[in-house]
Design a protein around this nucleic acid. Structure first.
Lengths: 216, 216
DNA sequence: CGAGAGATTGATGGTACTCAAGGACGGTGG
DNA sequence: CCACCGTCCTTGAGTACCATCAATCTCTCG
């Protein structure tokens, strides 16, 4: 595994890690920090596709398909493990366990996307908001970035709204309802899950603790 | 490759190929026909996540994650290539080219999901409708299932609406607008793309003809 | 012929968007 | 030190889009 590592890269908040339609020679895994994947339409609308946390692959599509159709941007300072894109094929040849682990991460990402698509397609704004909050809390907790029903958010409400497919104005109103009901609140860059059972019921959230993530 | 094939399976329209939360010992690739992946919430709402056409993998998440969180259902008669789930690991060990091809298919599926999520999250009903029609037409054409701006639809408008995240009632109204504008129509189980340039402009559609699909 | 599924259209209401204004905060420079 | 930004969040008013409920029509199938 280490023989494919070409070094580490640290980028600052707001930096673009990979850009849509451009062919970086590198792909990465996140070692530390938060990033987000997003994709825009010409007129300025954009969708946040998902967030990336430690252990996530960034640029698999680029490595395998030679084509990048979304952008990845750092939210916090992010420490990345750098791989040569053109050495990817040899991983499959020489290190089947690592290749399998990468497919694991890709399959998991697809599973998360399925859940988000269900959310955006079928749930109301309030349900979506709760679903994404729980989703991110659980993922953050799994890598030690959240504790005791409390999540420090490295992103703005605008990012969250773009992930939900609603406007940040409407997200603000939705958060007010949730706060008034004592279910959760988002204050000063921190999300507090105040009544997890009720929240899970409201969002029809299914905890997805499958197998442990393989090491990459 | 053939040594992993455990046989072929033909299922009838409407049959469930893989069921959410159940552990089939098999995974499949589609050899012929249409299927769709979908996922429901307890109260009956459901989202069609994507459609599967020849060459697509069905059940990768099951094979890699040992966990199936969506259902796959046949739309037409579907001919499937059957694989043993528990032999998947050995593919990585013994047949790196095949393993790489499977990751290719998985990465492509993720890319398609990204596009659909952008659509459902950001586009209006009429834009989404056009986007999905173009998307399916292009994919169908790539496997010889569509010709000359004409796509025979093996699915009902209800399926299409569930993929778009709108109701079938509203889809019907949206199709009426498109028909009145002479852009496309959906009549008697066939979608006619009558003005492709205008449709692409309306939906901000980006054709994605990347590398050719590897054989599986 | 009746039952059922799918599609279309109308009427009505709710959810979420747009436009707009204002407050809170942090960073910058006079 | 404080005025001046820019960014982010909040709230209000008015509107547009899409959902819901319901009726009708066609088509297929038993």
């Amino acid at each position: 595994m280490h023989q494919f590592k070409r070094g580490e890269l640290v980028v600052e908040p707001g930096a673009t890690i990979l850009l849509e339609n451009s062919a970086s020679p590198h792909v990465y895994t996140v070692l530390e920090g938060w990033a987000y994947r997003h994709k825009g339409i010409a007129d300025g609308r954009r969708q946040v596709l998902n967030f990336a946390l430690p252990g996530d692959l960034v640029g698999l599509q680029l490595a395998i398909l030679n084509d990048m159709q979304h952008t990845v941007t750092a939210l916090t300072q992010v420490r990345l493990c750098v791989f040569q894109r053109d050495s990817f094929w040899s991983v499959y040849h020489d290190h089947p366990a690592l290749a399998h682990a990468m497919t694991w991460v890709a399959a998991r990402e697809e599973q998360l996307l399925d859940g988000l698509l269900l959310s955006v397609g079928q749930r109301s704004a309030i349900e979506r908001t709760v679903y994404l909050a729980l989703h991110l809390y659980d993922r953050a907790k799994a890598v030690g970035y959240a504790t005791r029903d409390l999540l420090r958010t490295p992103f703005a409400q605008g990012h969250f709204a773009d992930a939900l497919g609603i406007t940040s104005v409407h997200l603000s109103r939705t958060l007010r309802k949730l706060r008034d009901q004592g279910l959760m609140r988002w204050q000063e860059g921190t999300i507090y899950l105040e009544n997890r059972p009720e929240l899970e019921a409201l969002a029809a959230y299914e905890r997805t603790d499958g197998e442990p993530r393989p090491l990459i």
